[in-house]
Structure formats: C-alpha cells, structure tokens
C-alpha cells in the first residue's frame, strides 16, 4: 500500500468512510436487539426437567415446528433439578432479548412458589407470559384388586379402614402428591402417602400391589389403564377427558369442587420487548394448532391450548391463587 499523508483530502474521505463502515458494523451487530429482525439467531428453550419427560417432549416437538416456521434453529437446554426451580431460575435471570425462553409448568409457576419458603425467583414478576401450551388432568387409578369401582366406594373403603390405604406419588411436592392430600382433606379420610422418585417406580409398585392407589399424570397411566393393569376411577380436572369420555371427574363422582390440572406454558424473562412476545406467541400458537401435534398430544391425554399472552397471564394468576389454597388447606409441607 502506497504511503499517503494524513492531511490529504483523499485520506480524510478514507477515514470518514472507515468510521462510517465501523458504525454500520456496530449497527449490524445490534440487529439482534431490534425486534424487526427477530429472530436473527438460535433460540434456546430451557426445559427444567430431564430429557424424555412430558415437558421435554412438548418442547422438542413444538420447537421443531417453530424452527421450521421462523427459519432459525431452536435448541433445547435441559436444566433439571429442585423440582424445576433451577431451570426456571436460570431463565428468569437470562437476557430478555427473546433468545432464551422457558418451558414452564404448574410446578414452576404455581406449586413451588406456594410450597417452598425460599424461592430463587418470583414466578409473578420475573417472567413475561407467552402462551399456554397444553393442560392435562391427573388420573385417579387403583390396583385392580382394590374393591372400589368408583370414587364413592373408594371414600367408603378409606373411611372403613383409616390409615390402611396407601397412595403413591412421583415425589414430595408434586401435583400427584398434592392431589392426594386435597382428596384426603375434602373427603375426610386418612390415607398414607408413599413418595417415589418419579412416576415409573410409583406405577410399578401400584401395579405390583404394594400400594393401592395413585393420582398419576394421565399420560403415564393411560396405557396401563387401557391394558387393564390398572383401573381408572376418575379424572381430576374440571372437565372429562376426551380420551376417556366415560370416566367422571372427581368432582362429579363425589367431591364437588375438587379440581386439579397440570399445565405447560412458554414464558420469557420479564422485560422482553412486546413485539418479540407477540411474534413468539404467534409462532407457538401456530405450532400448537398444527394437526399432527394436536393428534400426538391428544393421544396421550393432553389438551392443547394456545391463546394469547394475556390469557396465559390471567390463567397463571388464577392457578397460583388456587394452589395457594390447596397447599394451605392440605397442610403439605416440604423443607
């Protein structure tokens, strides 16, 4: 390159061009922050549970559909632990730029905040709701050798043998545990709670006859009911489930007012720009409405949802209040 003097007009132009170029490069680097060009890079969905569970599968199947639609990769980041709190906390503290979102559940946003005295995040303030993905009830299942064919008979049996019936759960503080505690309180019966590490060992012992009943996630117990290994007495939700239309709800069958629903929703860290939230809501709702996902989820007993972010915000508020009541009344405690 020939040497030039800095005082030449050509050089000044060159410096100005250079600065302009730098400015444009900086502006281009800031593109990801501007909502118009969102998404400009990979989106990360944090799933606060281990791979293979319902939350994880929902995230992966939805994520794949959304990725095809937005033209960017969507990766799943599993951060299990502490009943979902570790992943939720990580998401809450991530940058609110729309590139990190959370697969939240009834546990992370309604149960845990009411159950644990020290939460690392605030379920209300630290998150911006995107969309409700799906809801599912628990299924009240009993071992076939238990002589109760419906909820009323079960309550009668439990009253006749106080402390003798045992109900299994996937762990302390899970919706299955709390369903059982609420049932005990509302029906006025005494049953003993046997916690396990996850649904699978609990179901195994239920089928094996070590325990008598369980309020399990419908997705894991449905196949066993269909195969006759377990008998379903009722669903715990406010409505009957489309996959078992003949089965009454617990409220219909003897305990009016009993209603427990599990749910999954997408959240973004609080402060994420509204334009990005709207875009995410649109894309997610599109994925949720797709025929093959709907079929896949419904086969497992999940009810796809969708809707607006405001609807999710309202839903979460109601759920948080409801679980506050359930936890308080059932007297369940964890350290």
């Amino acid at each position: 390159m020939a040497r030039r003097s800095a005082s030449e007009p050509g050089m000044i132009m060159r410096i100005a061009n250079f600065r302009l170029a730098i400015g444009m490069i900086i502006a281009a680097g800031m593109q990801p922050l501007l909502a118009q060009d969102y998404p400009a890079k990979t989106i990360r969905i944090i799933v606060p549970y281990t791979p293979g569970g319902t939350a994880d599968l929902l995230a992966r199947t939805m994520g794949q559909k959304m990725a095809a639609s937005v033209g960017q990769q969507i990766i799943i980041d599993n951060r299990p632990g502490a009943g979902g709190s570790i992943g939720a906390d990580l998401a809450a503290k991530s940058a609110p730029d729309g590139y990190t979102i959370l697969m939240g559940t009834v546990a992370t946003h309604a149960i845990n905040p009411n159950l644990y005295p020290n939460m690392p995040y605030d379920a209300n303030k630290d998150f911006a709701p995107i969309v409700l993905i799906a809801t599912l009830p628990n299924l009240l299942v009993v071992n076939p050798s238990t002589p109760a064919k419906n909820v009323k008979e079960l309550i009668a049996l439990a009253k006749a043998k106080p402390g003798e019936l045992a109900f299994a759960s996937a762990g302390n503080g899970t919706s299955q545990h709390l369903s059982g505690e609420l049932f005990k309180k509302m029906a006025g019966v005494d049953m003993i709670h046997i916690p396990y590490k996850g649904s699978a060992p609990a179901l195994t012992d239920l089928i094996g006859g070590q325990v008598q009943l369980m309020f399990d996630n419908i997705s894991s117990s449905l196949p066993q009911v269909r195969a006759g290994k377990l008998r379903a007495l009722a669903v715990t939700g406010p409505r009957r489930s489309p996959v078992l239309p003949a089965l009454p709800t617990v409220a219909e069958a003897g305990l009016p007012g009993f209603s427990i629903t599990s749910w999954f929703a997408l959240f973004a860290p609080a402060g994420t720009p509204a334009k990005i939230l709207i875009r995410l809501n649109k894309e997610a709702a599109k994925a949720i409405a797709s025929k093959d996902l709907q079929q896949q989820w419904m086969d497992q007993g999940l009810e796809p949802a969708g809707g607006t972010s405001d609807q999710l915000a309202e839903f979460r508020r109601i759920e948080a209040a409801r679980w506050e009541k359930i936890v308080r009344e059932s007297g369940a405690r964890v350290e």
Binding site: P51, D56, L57, A227, K229, Q295, Q296, Q300
Partner: peptide, 18 residues
C-alpha cells in the same frame, strides 16, 4: 428407557402392554 418412551410417543406409539 425414559427417553425411549419419549421417542416412541413422538412417533405416535403409545408405550404400554399393548
């Protein structure tokens, strides 16, 4: 195996005795 359950579910096979 839990992951395999997931894989089966994604492919429309409900894992179970049937």
């Amino acid at each position: 195996m839990a992951l395999m359950v997931g894989a089966m579910t994604i492919h429309g096979i409900i894992p179970g005795p049937q």
